[in-house]
């Protein structure tokens, strides 16, 4: 009962399908799950298993073909685009495999951006703290194209955390990094997860990373195949 009250994310019968020619192809098929607040959850599976699609549906980046998503007790499935935008801005952080920094903004500006959208007067201070925390303060004026892969991902993590989100979604955050940088990024995410108490939902196919999580949800061909550590 106690665990139920701490649930931050619920998915009920999530299905996502796309028309391919004259037939419909299901990428995700009737997936249901719940995630407790503060958990570090890995969504694992081989390439094409539906990890990224599940992540986009859980985070409100995309809408399911059927099923419902409930975040912090609020059904977000039918929220308007602007409603979802506000939710993403205030309650969710993202870290992507390809970093997806805004190319026209420098490191500091990229980190500040979500806070500025919220009209947070302390955006600059918060961004500075975060960049110092990840050791990139000296590189704050650099634009994405002037940063290395590891640096870009650290900036992306700072940007994801600046609004103190309830949930942090990370999609293959080490997919474009070498092993040294990969370890550093996972260490950083784990530390920040601990420091901020943020729920971390991380999609990966790496078994090394999976070992560090509290819970591993495995997907196979768009279906939930196992759920370890519940």
């Amino acid at each position: 009962m106690d665990r139920m009250t701490n649930i931050i994310l619920e998915a009920h019968n999530l299905t996502k399908s796309y028309p391919v020619g004259d037939r419909t192809m299901a990428i995700l098929d009737e997936v249901s799950l719940t995630i407790a607040a503060g958990q570090f959850v890995i969504i694992a599976g081989s390439s094409g298993s539906g990890k990224t699609t599940l992540l986009t549906l859980l985070s409100g980046l995309d809408r399911p073909s059927s099923g419902r998503v409930i975040m912090a007790g609020q059904d977000i499935t039918d929220l308007s685009e602007d409603g979802l935008a506000r939710l993403r801005n205030e309650q969710i952080g993202f870290v992507f495999q390809a970093f997806h920094l805004v190319p026209s903004l420098n490191a500091l500006e990229n980190v500040m951006f979500p806070a500025e959208l919220k009209q947070d007067r302390l955006a600059g201070e918060k961004a500075a703290k975060l960049l110092q925390r990840v050791g990139l303060w000296e590189r704050r004026q650099h634009f994405p194209e002037q940063l290395s892969g590891g640096e870009k991902q650290r900036v992306a993590i700072c940007r994801a955390l600046i609004n103190s989100p309830k949930i942090l979604f990370a999609d293959e955050p080490t997919g474009n990094l070498d092993s040294k940088n990969s370890d550093a990024i996972i260490d950083l995410l784990a530390e920040l997860h601990r420091e901020h108490g943020t729920t971390l939902v991380l999609a990966t196919h790496s078994s090394d990373i999976a070992e560090r999580a509290q819970r591993i949800i495995r997907l196979c061909d768009g279906r939930l195949s196992s759920d370890e550590g519940m």
């Binding site: 506000r86 801005n89 993202f94 940007r159």
Partner: peptide
């Protein structure tokens, strides 16, 4: 990306 950061369409 900007929309993913939470910027509404009007932004």
């Amino acid at each position: 990306i900007i929309k993913a950061m939470g910027a509404p369409g009007s932004f």
